Structures are given as C-alpha cells and as structure tokens.
Simulated assay, not measured.
Amino acid sequence: MDEAALLKKSDGPVTRSRLVRDLTALGLGHGDVAMFHTRMSAVGYVAGGARTVIDALRDVVGEPGTLMVTCGWNDALPYDFTDWPQAWQDALRAEHPAYDVELSESDHDYGRLPEALRLRPGAVRSRHPDAGFAALGAAATTLMADHPWNDPHGADSPLARLVALGGRVLLLGAPLDSLTLLHHAEALAEAPGKRFVDHEQPILADGKRVWRRFHDIDSSEGAFDYSSVVPEGQDPFEAIAQDMLTAGMGRRGTVGAAESHLFEAAEVVDFGVAWIEEGLGRPR
C-alpha cells in the first residue's frame, strides 16, 4: 500500500502522540509488561515507522514497564535439512553461521518491529535460536534469562514468565492468529496426539560454534491436529481467540486505523489450555 493510501486510511499521519492516546484508551498502562504483535500496514501511515511505534509504547508503559516481542532467527535451518543430500548437509555443518544473539536477524515473517526492538540499546534477547524472544524495559532480563533449550514454549520459558509477571498481550493491528502466547497453552495442555519436533542448529557456546539438538512442540505445523474442532481454512489460534472475545475476555479498540486487541496473558493461557483439552480430550 502506498503512502497516499495509508494516509487516507488513517485519516492523516499516525503520530507518536496519537498512538499514545489510542493505546491508553485501549487500556495499556504505566508499568505494564506487554508482549506485542504489530501489522504496520493496518495502523496506517505511521510518521517515523517502527521507531515511532516503539517510542509510543514505551511512553505508555513508562520506565517500570517492559515490552516483549517474538524474534526467532531469520536464517535458522529448516527442521528437515537432515533429509537433504549428504554433501549439502556437510557444507552447512562446516560453514552455516552460528546463532548470535547480537548479530542474527529476527525472522522477517514477524515484521519490522521485533528487529527494531531487539536493536534498541538496553534490549535483551533470549538465547534460543528458533523460539527466541527479545524484551526492553525493567523486567527484560527476568523474562529472557536462561531460556530453556528444550521445551522453550513451556515451563520457565519467557512466555511462562510473562504470565507470572501479570503480563498482557497487545495485537496492534495484527490478526488474532498471531497470538503466539497460545504456544505456551499448547505446551501445557494434556491432550492426545501432541506433536513434537527435534532439530539441530549451530549456536555459540563460550565463543565457539557448536551444533546443538533441540526438542519442542511443533510450533510450525501445530502441536495438535485441530481438524475435528476448527473449520477448514481457519487458523486454530484465531478460533481460540474468537471464542475468548465471545466469552468477554480482552479489550478491543482502534489504534491509528487498526482494529487492535489487548488480552491478559494469564487469561489467554488458562482459556487456551481448557479449550484444547475440552475440544481434543485429555489423554487416557
């Protein structure tokens, strides 16, 4: 969408002060620990782009608050690279760069904001190459420290700590299926047929490049087969989030030109676990 169209969509420039007013009206507040997902094109023409959005969010949560994003790693190897021809595998094992919390780019599929936030002075990025996060603010180190290598969406993960700190999740123009916190609900839920993945990535250990194996729920294809409870063509996370809204959870509002939502992290996880276990059944 070109600039003129974005300006028209948002009825003029979306400035830092306008974002602060809209975010405050939505319910985001001073001292909040907030994980956020953003679709910039939905917000409209943001004067200053990603920098302005982060500045506005920091204005609202203030010095005691913390912002958190999903980062991942844009150059992570696909899980199935071990099925490639042996010569290809050998070349990758010899020279594929290691994940570096300082240098490795965030996954481009998550948009501009994660990379912009992780590059901010004072930002802390978690050590996990595939399921990594970044945070900025008072609780950043608490959220990111010692991200478990295995079960990185489960107990003691940054997502679990977000819940423990009374955190919130902001969808700033982002679709409901971007509610990454529901991966934590998947990790906790006890239902039949839970899918896991084991994969390898090169990381830095004491400054040296080493290969490490990781074990996690299948957050790419889905930890469960939801086909019996979710209509074909609908994302399971969207279905869960829609049911949450129907149940009266979360707040809706407009930020810039974007329909936005604000959820309580603990409610998301509790509802998500119950929804999965009731819909798919508990294992016998």
Score class of each variant (00 low, 15 high):
167 G>P: 04
147 H>S: 11
95 E>I: 00
166 G>M: 03
192 P>E: 04
196 F>C: 06
103 L>R: 15
174 A>R: 07
257 A>M: 10
109 D>K: 12
259 E>N: 14
163 V>C: 09
45 Y>W: 15
46 V>L: 13
97 P>I: 13
27 G>W: 07
161 R>S: 09
62 G>P: 10
149 W>K: 11
220 S>F: 02
276 I>P: 09
77 L>E: 08
112 R>G: 06
57 L>G: 10
284 R>E: 15
74 N>G: 14
5 A>I: 05
39 R>G: 03
266 A>M: 01
139 A>V: 00
259 E>M: 12
173 G>T: 06
25 A>R: 15
110 Y>A: 05
243 D>A: 15
277 E>L: 00
241 A>G: 11
187 A>Y: 02
145 A>C: 05
245 L>F: 03
150 N>S: 13
281 G>W: 08
270 D>W: 00
67 L>F: 01
68 M>G: 06
253 G>P: 12
215 H>M: 04
244 M>E: 02
263 F>T: 02
12 G>M: 14
250 G>K: 04
90 D>E: 13
52 T>H: 13
158 P>Y: 12
167 G>C: 06
110 Y>M: 10
186 E>I: 10
103 L>G: 05
251 R>I: 01
7 L>C: 09
254 T>P: 00
124 V>N: 01
260 S>R: 05
110 Y>D: 02
169 V>A: 04
199 H>V: 09
92 L>N: 07
195 R>M: 03
57 L>P: 07
